[in-house]
Design a binder for these strands. Sequence first.
DNA 1: TGGGGAATTTTCCTATTGGAAAAAATATCT
DNA 2: AGATATTTTTTCCAATAGGAAAATTCCCCA
Lengths: 194, 194
Amino acid sequence: MSEEETQESQRVAFGRRLRQLRRQNNWTLADVADRAGLAISTISKAERGIIALTYDRMALLADGLGVDMAALFAEQGENFTPGSFAVARKGEFHRQETSNYVYEMLFPELWNKSMSPMMGTLKAHNVMDFEEFVRHPGQEFLVVMEGAVTVHVEGREPVTLQQGDSIYFDSALGHLYASDGDNDARILVVCSAS
Amino acid sequence: MSEEETQESQRVAFGRRLRQLRRQNNWTLADVADRAGLAISTISKAERGIIALTYDRMALLADGLGVDMAALFAEQGENFTPGSFAVARKGEFHRQETSNYVYEMLFPELWNKSMSPMMGTLKAHNVMDFEEFVRHPGQEFLVVMEGAVTVHVEGREPVTLQQGDSIYFDSALGHLYASDGDNDARILVVCSAS
DNA sequence: TGGGGAATTTTCCTATTGGAAAAAATATCT
DNA sequence: AGATATTTTTTCCAATAGGAAAATTCCCCA
């Protein structure tokens, strides 16, 4: 039956991706099984599309492979196809927290965006962890929406930006943001994809 | 055990997301079951985190919900873990006018930017020239900083955005912005290079 | 080329999922 | 409020996933 066939092949394709991710790191089944806390046989079967992993095992496996769950599906993900279009209403963001920031990804459901816009809140008086300079490919643009922000860029003097000010830099430079005043600061950050 | 607990809650959170997606469209379990080709009970249990869906059911369910598989997991993960450098103070922009807009290019002196941020002012009650749909390669992101803006995108219903709302679209689609209220509107637009 | 260890697949069994239908809970209408 | 229709949850059983260990295949090197 065609239904089953396509489903079968989809699972097989997914398995191939799993194996590829594992091989990419030169890990054996045992390595990943260990890291993920799964049985070797389970991973073996999954990679060959013999079984359909359950959600919980998948989460563990993603963890063991060191990738985000969503990344596992990135390939079959909907591309930002020519003609795409999306609106984000104030507040309906996808919230995410790191040790240093709280930020909300806009349009998380869009894949292959060439830009990633995020709204972020910087807590006042937050102690920054300077060991944790962030670095990634691409370029970055930041505007201060509310409050004041001090931007630390590796190897440069910190820059303080007031509301309305903006900065543009190469994301490969280690960078960190911190609220400058006594109030929380609100920022809009846009990262370019590559 | 903590391991199991976090896993459990993760599954529950995932379930909530599923239910939210379904409710968002005012679909009943039966509706989605029908669209996805799954049993009602399966979806019910999944939404409550009673069971861990298998890969194949998850693929069908995503389909039934009309979302991409990757979107289900849109945690978007490490977008934030992958030079030049420039600061623009509020107001020190490079001013430019067109028949429809007044906008100010940020960082005009920077070359090879992969993104072009611009601040724009939309005059209230401005008569738009709809012959003049703008089209260009790349993608575009717009946030409303002040006021309200109606975005006209070719072949779609106009969308009205309030302060804080944003939109992301393919710049190849003809597009136009207009202030919506009685006051001027202030927008931030970022275009990707290609 | 053949031994020996590492990596992967298979086997076999238990635990869990997935579906159909009954039961329960909600919503709707008069 | 009662009756009925709609939606969701529960139940129970068949189908499938997951793990431990045995069997097999794959490599590497003498």
